[in-house]
């Protein structure tokens, strides 16, 4: 689907007889531990999911437990873009711009059905999944997801961050969209996924 930044296969090999990687491995552990537990979110809240995001940040669920209570409303000081809510076409260039303004390393969580797939808004106005505009690391399903669901997604992202290796050359590459279409997914795939049942003006197809 054109989502990988580079073609090399990325694996981490662990060879106990060789102690060469010991220093970097321990350093990775320290850095990743620090990073994973202080992810500053950039809440891109648009709709219903933003209310559940606020509930997650409030006292009952308390995002501060994960070092995330510092909402970074400026993309330039943020680590995680949390897209909470539906993204219409009019908003598409805005979220792309915000993603480009965030410094590396950065991650994205797509919160809710609408951000992930368009959800119940399969119509002329709504982007069918923000992964066509920006690369997404974790999808949280639900309409809207419960705070527990979002926290589970955040934990998954923390796992991902903890498993990164600084020796991996491609890990901080900025993922560039296809230059001709400016999309991360080939247009033919978007069309196929977007309109499996075609398009119609007929509102009473069965005559009922």
């Amino acid at each position: 689907m054109g989502l990988s930044a580079s073609t090399e296969h990325r694996t981490v090999s662990y060879a106990p007889e060789s102690q060469e990687g010991w220093v970097t491995t321990r350093l990775d552990f320290l850095v990743n531990w620090g990073r994973a537990n202080s992810l500053w979110p950039m809440p891109f809240g648009t709709a219903c999911c933003a209310i559940e995001f606020m509930a997650t940040a409030a006292s009952d669920f308390d995002l501060a437990r994960f070092g995330m209570e510092r909402m970074s409303f400026s993309p330039r000081q943020a680590d995680v873009l949390i897209c909470a809510g539906r993204v219409p076409f009019k908003l598409a260039p805005i979220i792309r711009r915000i993603w480009q303004q965030m410094p590396q390393p950065k991650w994205a969580i797509s919160m809710g059905a609408c951000a992930s797939t368009g959800g119940m808004f399969d119509n002329y106005a709504v982007v069918q999944g923000i992964d066509t505009i920006i690369p997404v690391d974790v999808y949280v399903p639900g309409c809207p997801p419960r705070p527990e669901g979002l926290i589970y997604g955040i934990r998954m992202l923390q796992e991902k961050v903890k498993n990164e290796r600084s020796s991996d050359a491609g890990i901080r590459d900025e993922m560039e969209p296809d230059p001709s279409s400016q999309l991360y997914i080939p247009p033919s795939v978007i069309d196929e996924l977007g309109e499996p049942f075609g398009n119609s003006v007929n509102q009473t197809r069965s005559g009922l």
């Binding site: 399969d122 119509n123 002329y124 982007v127 400016q182 247009p187 978007i190 977007g194 003006v201």
Partner: peptide, 13 residues
Amino acid sequence: PLRGRFSRSEQLR
């Protein structure tokens, strides 16, 4: 039409 006149990829573009 409900999903607009253009294809999804064209709308995004």
